[in-house]
């Protein structure tokens, strides 16, 4: 059975000892979208992402992947770049990339072929035999990005992908992400950097205090909540304003 939604989350709740990370959260992620997962620190974004990656399990609720319950093998079809990310410092770049690729189910041979292609594309073939601790942070991030997308996953999850990149490389990365979407991948994009959301996301969900407080298409949300502001204030209301107002509970519909 195929469905238009790659991920459907139904009433997921996840509690830790003293706080509830997610409280009855539901959302659907359309196939082929770039989906922004927004919210202040500690809102529950990372917990939600970990649930989708099967790193933790929800206390209640269901997670559907391609219309059926998430299976252990589905992690091979997901690529995840966590916010807390890093590489083995003492391992050589090429060897390490092969290790991560094989963890995602690629054979050694396939991994090498694909890696060589990506390294060529980024112009970093000379790094293959260098150790990670000889690379700068930005260089390591590039390797990390390649490792995340190498197995051509259907679903890509990026948690604050642009932190640690200079503007030129951030732009390169953004284009790669959009390119992956054009080739059919769905991208979940977790951030609190609103300007990047406006540029690349077509859908968003805003999570605050463990709840999904705002969800929908970016253009609709802007029309819905930004309209009046557009009249009263001369500027186009930015997603940043909507974000702040939503979190503070001051969001009011633009049209009455």
């Amino acid at each position: 059975m195929t469905t238009d939604n790659i991920i459907e989350i139904h009433r997921v709740t996840k509690a830790f000892a003293k706080h509830t990370a997610l409280d009855d959260v539901s959302l659907t992620i359309p196939r082929g979208s770039v989906y922004g997962l927004l919210g202040p620190n500690g809102a529950g974004k990372t917990t939600l992402i970990r649930i989708i990656n099967r790193i933790t399990a929800p206390d209640s609720g269901r997670v559907l992947f391609n219309g059926r319950d998430l299976q252990p093998e589905d992690v091979y079809r997901i690529g995840y770049l966590p916010e807390e990310r890093g590489l083995y410092k003492k391992m050589k770049v090429g060897e390490q990339a092969i290790f991560f690729a094989r963890l995602k189910g690629l054979s050694r041979h396939d991994a090498i072929v694909k890696l060589k292609a990506w390294f060529e594309k980024f112009g970093i073939e000379s790094w293959w035999d260098r150790k990670v601790d000889e690379l700068s942070k930005g260089m390591a991030q590039k390797v990390q990005f390649i490792v995340t997308v190498l197995h051509e996953p259907e679903l890509l999850i990026f948690d604050e992908p642009f932190s640690g990149f200079d503007p030129i490389n951030a732009n390169l990365l953004k284009e790669e992400i959009l390119g992956l979407r054009d080739r059919g991948a769905t991208v979940i994009f977790s951030t609190h950097n609103m300007s990047s959301v406006e540029e690349i996301c077509d859908h968003i969900t805003l999570i605050n205090n463990s709840h999904n407080i705002l969800t929908g298409r970016v253009d609709e949300i802007r029309r819905q909540y930004g309209e009046r502001k557009m009249i009263t204030v001369e500027e186009v209301s930015s997603m940043n304003d909507i974000f702040i107002k939503a979190v503070k509970g001051e969001l009011s519909h633009g049209k009455h």
Binding site: V75, Y80, P82, R85, K89
Partner: peptide, 17 residues
């Protein structure tokens, strides 16, 4: 060491802890 390298979360997205 893996914790310091921040490599753990990348790994547990492919392998269970």
């Amino acid at each position: 060491e893996e914790k310091n390298n921040r490599v753990l979360e990348v790994i547990v997205s492919s392998v269970s802890p």
